[in-house]
Amino acid sequence: MLEAKKVAFRYATDGPWLFQGLDIDIKPGEIVGLPGSSGKGKSTLAKTLAGYMKPHQGSIRIDGHPLQQKAFNPVQLLFQHPELAVNPRWKIKKLLAEAAAPSSDLLTELSIDESWMERYPHELSGGELQRVCLARALHPKTQYLLCDEMTSMLDALTQAIIWKAVLGIAKKRNLGLLVISHDSALISSLCRRTLDYFIQPV
């Protein structure tokens, strides 16, 4: 179980807290939704859960152990802007193989075309590049996927295709998913449980 207890974070030492005393847990095989409006700290929470940033208070543990710094990170983060999450000077082939070359089954499942391999990231569309990032994140050792507005730049049909693939893989591998989105229809059709911390009381 990926578990955050009483975590707090702020950017400036005297600035406002983005979140404080926040508890969240994601069990393997579970899909948790995180709705909320922009600029509230949803992405920052995802970055702390994935170990990119340390929370100022509280702890983040996987099955009771803290995140390891020098091993493969079982918590993988997918970003809102895939073009900023890849090295622009690497070809797709090299990007995909950054952790380990993905299996051809996975590439077919995500409809990643063989002809993309020799292209650079800017030669793919946002949706295509997001699928490349997804294939890169779906390493065999990955246990949790944090999807930060993963499909917000995609058309409805591609979005449904990607989620169908992700849901299939998540079920097969018993992955825990965190779905960060401002699209309440998407969250309610994907998730049984949501964390409403970032929803402003009206």
Binding site: S111, A156, L157, A160, I161, W163, A185, S188
Partner: peptide, 21 residues
């Protein structure tokens, strides 16, 4: 029609046709 039916508020993943590329 497929695009319209794939909206999360409508059919979403259930309405997908079998083949994708």
């Amino acid at each position: 029609r497929a695009l319209w039916d794939a909206l999360p508020g409508r059919g979403f993943v259930k309405s997908l046709p079998a083949r994708s590329p």
